[in-house]
Simulated scan of single mutants.
Amino acid sequence: MVDEESIGGSRFDVAVRAMKGDFDPPKASEDTEKRSLLEALVQFPSFYTFSIVGKVETTSKAPGKVFTKDTLETVERICGTKLATGHYSVREKAGGKYISMRITTLVQSADLVKATYDELLKDPRVIMAY
């Protein structure tokens, strides 16, 4: 149990300081833990599978096609590879409201995996990327 006096006052004072962020851990400049773990588990260059779930755009004449095309282009651009049809799969979910994609491609480093996820998550249609 934490002694309230050692951290500056009553329970109320401690709660206020916590809400202000006084006890938050320092912000790291870069998330290296996941990259280091990936580097330890995978010997690069290696094939890596990205899994992405996104919302289907309802304004398009070809629902899901634009999202699929944009996602494939993002992975190709960052990883520096050209994807063949057999290296990705697309499935509709929830009656066509969502799309689940699995993309397997050759990746040269863990940094490229992280950069790909970072770029994919900038797209507001992307719900999850793992």
Results as ranks from 00 to 15, higher is better:
F47E: 10
M101W: 04
A28V: 12
K114D: 12
G96N: 00
A18I: 08
D24L: 07
L106Q: 10
V2Y: 09
S100I: 05
K69W: 12
S89T: 14
G80P: 09
F50H: 02
E73V: 13
D118A: 06
D24K: 06
T85F: 15
M1D: 12
L120A: 00
Y130D: 14
R11V: 11
K82Y: 06
M1C: 11
V66K: 13
E92I: 13
E73S: 13
F23V: 01
F47M: 10
I99G: 03
E5N: 10
L72T: 05
A40F: 14
I99E: 05
S60M: 02
Y88G: 01
V66P: 08
L120T: 00
E33Y: 15
K93H: 11
S6A: 10
L38W: 02
S109W: 00
A110K: 04
K34D: 14
S100V: 06
P124M: 02
T81P: 13
D111F: 07
K34G: 13
I99T: 06
G86Y: 15
K55M: 07
D123M: 04
A62E: 13
K55D: 07
T74G: 05
E30D: 14
E33P: 10
D111Y: 08
A84C: 14
D13W: 01
D31I: 10
S100E: 12
R102V: 10
Q43V: 07
V126M: 00
R77H: 14
A84P: 11
K93M: 12
K93A: 13
A94Q: 07
T59A: 10
L112C: 09
G8I: 05
E5G: 09
V2A: 11
V16E: 07
K27L: 08
F67M: 11
I127G: 01
T71Q: 04
L120Y: 02
G54P: 02
D70E: 13
H87P: 08
S51W: 03
S36E: 14
E76C: 03
V56M: 06
T104Y: 04
I78T: 03
M101C: 01
V16G: 01
C79K: 03
V16Q: 06
K69V: 11
D123L: 04
A115V: 07
K20N: 04
T74K: 08
V90R: 09
D24S: 06
A40R: 13
K93C: 09
P63I: 02
Y130A: 14
T59C: 09
T32R: 11
I78R: 01
E57S: 12
E39M: 08
E30V: 11
V75A: 07
L121S: 06
V16F: 05
P124A: 02
L37I: 14
V14W: 01
A129E: 02
T74W: 05
R102Q: 10
K20R: 08
E4R: 14
D24T: 02
A62W: 09
G96Q: 02
A28M: 12
Q43K: 11
A15F: 09
G64K: 00
Q108C: 08
L37F: 15
R35S: 14
S60P: 02
E33L: 15
K122N: 04
F44K: 05
K27C: 03
G8R: 05
E73H: 15
Q108D: 12
E76A: 03
C79G: 00
F50W: 01
C79V: 08
V66S: 14
K114N: 10
V42A: 01
G54N: 00
A15D: 04
S89A: 15
T74P: 03
K65H: 11
D123C: 05
